[in-house]
Nucleic acid binder design. Sequence first.
DNA 1: GATCGCCAGCA
DNA 2: TGCTGG
DNA 3: GATC
Length: 731
Amino acid sequence: MIAPQTSRDAEAKKKIGFDALYALDNESDEAEDDGLLASLQKVQGKTLGDPTISLSRSRRTPGRPPGSLVRSKSNIIPALSLSTQQHQKPRNTKSPLELLNELSAAAAATSTSNSIVKDTPTLQHHNTVTGVPSLEKPADDGKMPPSSALPASSAIPMIKNKKGKGKQVVDIKLVPEDQRIFQGLHFYFFPNSDTHPGRRQRIIKAIEYGASWQDKFNDTVTHIIVDRDYDFEQLLKYLKLKELPAGIVVVNENYTATCMDFYKLVDTSTIEFRVKGYEPPASSATIAQPNPSQASEVSLQLKPVKRKAVVLSSQVTSEASLNLVSSSAASLSNSPAPGVLDPQQVPNKDEDELDTAIRQAKESHPLASDDEDDVEGHKRRKTNNWQDKFQCMHKHTGKSGDQGPNAHTLVVLQELADHYDQIRDQWRCKSYRQAISALRKQTTKISTKEAAMRVYGIGSSIAEKIEEIVRTTHLRKLDFAKLDERQQILNRFMKIYGVGLHAAENFASAGYKTIDDLLQKAELTDNQRIGIDHYDDFNSRVPRAEVEKHAGIVKKALKGLDKNYIVNTMGSYRRGAQDSGDIDLLITKPGASIDEIRTTVMDRLVPLLTKHKFLVAALAQTSQADGTKWHGASCLPDSSTWRRIDLLLVPEEELGAALLYFTGNDIFNRSMRLLASKKGMRLNQRGLYKDVLRDYGREKLSEGTLVEGKDERKIFEALGVPWRPPEHRIC
DNA sequence: GATCGCCAGCA
DNA sequence: TGCTGG
DNA sequence: GATC
Ligand SMILES: O=c1ccn([C@H]2C[C@H](O)[C@@H](COP(=O)(O)OP(=O)(O)OP(=O)(O)O)O2)c(=O)[nH]1
Ligand SMILES: [Mg+2]
């Protein structure tokens, strides 16, 4: 599409609208008579086409509101309420656990949330909180054994809800059973409250990994986790003890995190966990593990890689990392030594080009300036221009990446992104994708955390992982992620069209493990049944050539009805991908109203193609009145493979915005829309609107007035974004 | 500690 | 309205 | 998970 692209560029400068339209139409129509264009497309696909490695976008999930947990009966998810300021007010002498219990009870009573409810708030008790939810247990239940029967739930994405201003509910997601390294352990934190956010987080995490959180210091406590700011003496003083009972482990706050990093209980006597003023018993190392889990065994097989994050190096770990460094030194010898790298060079090398492009974009729209921000944007900032933060401001060239200097790192990071996509952690997934995108642009190999962190979009966490990947060629975290059985089941189910996280959890909690189970036992919607019947079809990619065939059939049929119709093939196809997840078609007719188009497509085209057995299923149809899309499945003659096919009906006035939306990719869209909103505008598939009044913080109060909808390029211009051809819209 | 795009169809 | 998908 |  290189040639057509440029010719279209030239044309568009002279004329707008129709001609551009036609150029587009020609472009896609020519696919039918093949020949030159087809070969062009092949070449182009190789050079700058969508590399199609970005798999991590199956489904997005909106935040899970607090009440939603109640809905499912078969699968109750524990929500643990931790103390909030508000609830502390009335009686501020409460222990965190009491607060927790009260909150939980209240929550249970109003049934806004399922809760872990343990113990009475009586002070006498040795209160115990584990991550184990007591299903349907009355709030005033007696003491719970720390390791009670476990619910089926796991891997619930922690999604914060901001709306419930009144209470702050925290979803505790227990890690899979075999990973609960703290199972059977009783932690006492010092200080033992969850008021401090960091500590609170540590407590939550520890519970998720199987620990019980002891409210009082009692004889069940196995570990005392002491905050950095405190020493052993203070602890003893607080506990009014001369010395601690034997067998209790005293460690600092690094301990839990490190254990979770390794998925096993690590040596507690090393110096990095040492609490000031505390002399650990001379005994060699590990305390008896009350519950050596499978995970621990598995983790033993792993190389005891120590990441350098944990501040001070102990003897043990420094040895390990020394080995690693030296062993990897050889493989690194080709790349420049980390310290030698010119710091200036690491952030975008294409800065000049970009700035130029942005300036150009600005020149045409001086009103959309960003002077205030621009003035002093150079103080340890990763980017000089605030707009650079938007992915849509950057082109994606196929050059770097696959063969680039960071190719392997990118592959591993992509796996992590996929993992987070699978567990429906949309924000981490997005972060990883953005980091990947940023790393792909780097022209030098990034091997150290420091270097990585200079790149916009890569923070300390991913930077550490990059370093680990470079040193060890892979990531421990992934090894575990892949093992989790329940997660595998969820993944299997969520690949069914029409099954999302919620349905998958319900199925899994009902004990279904295979697709067959679902077919036989589960209650399925019509679409889900279709999704199962064509599980493999829908989960396989459509070769570019086949996309063209499907598009061709639709085009031919539609032109038979009315030759003024225009069909454009969108989605990853338009971005130049060699294969696509589905077939995205945009249908328009110059001068026609949306009603006319809808009537033609819905009442004539779809029935016609259905009759010819090309369209074989309708998954989502527009409600006659005001719909613009049809989603279903198609099947080529002489084939038995069903493909998902998407028709988007668009009036000419909205063509540009629709092209923009339907070309994607999704990150690019989100980036453009975010940029629009930052500029007081709003971008959707119908157009770009300005003067949008937004609620405090967020939601729109007025629609705004239309700026542009018809011409894709003008939307870029109005937003101050340099034009990106579809192939460059891969973020 | 708030924010991370915005929308449509279906149950 | 929440879930699912684009 | 990254950013402001
Ligand atoms: O979450 C999403 C998904 C899709 N889209 C837009 C962009 C995308 O390009 C277009 C078509 O969606 P589709 O799911 O078909 O994605 P694709 O980019 O075409 O990739 P694939 O090859 O998987 O079809 O719809 C979004 O804006 N957000
Ligand atoms: Mg597609």
